[in-house]
């Protein structure tokens, strides 16, 4: 059985259909990159995975059971911003998950346990290249460093599923490439299932194991809300050619124009 099964999934906000008839199954350990026009419902899909939004029709199953309808530790997330806690230093941000787990009431640990957690956190921060910024607060870090911190914070909890919503969208292309390397590296080591949204189509083509394109098959320029987006392409990464990229780009661009108008 696949870890995640999506069966005829719909999401509507009132009259507006955002997603319709999604069908897919994802195995444990896959790395799915999600691309699509702005406003076509990528974040909405991620929110359903997270449990902060629920499907209006159909099913979203984790191990055959409906996915829990509130966030919990099985699903980690990195948002585009506000992902790290501003009142904690880098190392405290990464220690937090361990503290919460060992002390249900105080949410704080002391003494030897604290030292152990700190060591783990320092190791984790080193693996994302932040070993020089342990005691810094998030506002003292650059955007890229904050996102690396958010990754470290999410990964130390060892979630089964990691959700990434354009985590590097605001970064320079060069840094973004480094960050992708980092994510791929951590994914290989930790054996997680990853869903990553990105804006850049070409990027999605070379990242992870599988790429989904969210797009509206039917498009009514007057009322773009009357039809939802579907998974129009579900491609294994690595063996697709230039022609496919071009036709996807064209189709996504025309959807983007209608949604953006």
């Amino acid at each position: 059985m696949a870890a995640i099964e999506i069966k005829n999934l719909w999401k509507e906000y009132g009259q507006d259909v955002v997603l319709e008839r999604l069908n897919a199954s994802v195995e444990e350990g896959e790395f799915v990159t999600v691309v699509g026009a702005s406003g076509c419902g990528k974040t909405t899909f991620l929110k359903m995975m997270l449990g902060t939004e629920s499907p209006t029709r159909g099913q979203l199953l984790l191990d055959g059971k409906p996915i829990p309808d509130e966030p919990d530790e099985t699903r980690g997330i990195v948002f585009q911003r506000y992902s790290v806690l501003p009142h904690l230093t880098a190392v405290e941000n990464v220690m937090l998950a361990g503290e919460l787990e060992s002390s249900r009431w105080l949410g704080r640990v002391f003494g030897g346990k604290r030292r152990a957690l700190r060591e783990q956190a320092e190791e984790m921060l080193a693996s994302v290249g932040l070993d020089h910024a342990l005691g810094k607060y998030p506002h003292e870090l650059s955007g890229g460093m904050q996102q690396r911190l958010a990754l470290a914070q999410a990964l130390i909890k060892k979630p089964r599923i990691l959700l990434l919503d354009e985590p590097f969208g605001a970064l320079d292309p060069g840094i973004r490439r480094d960050m992708h390397e980092l994510v791929l590296d951590l994914w290989r080591k930790q054996d997680l299932t990853v869903f990553m949204i990105t804006h850049d189509l070409a990027e999605g083509f070379f990242l992870g194991t599988r790429m989904w394109v969210f797009d509206k098959e039917r498009l009514d320029p007057q009322t773009p809300g009357s039809y939802g987006a579907r998974i129009t392409y579900d491609l294994p990464v690595g063996n697709s050619d230039k022609g496919t990229l071009q036709s996807i780009t064209q189709s996504v661009d025309s959807t983007a124009r209608v949604l953006g108008a």
């Binding site: 997270l50 919990d72 997330i77 806690l85 998950a97 919460l100």
Partner: peptide
């Protein structure tokens, strides 16, 4: 809200 969600994904209960 992102931070409140974040706390839950790190395993926090309401009190925490």
């Amino acid at each position: 809200t992102e931070q409140i969600i974040k706390m839950q994904t790190l395993g926090a209960n309401t009190w925490q």
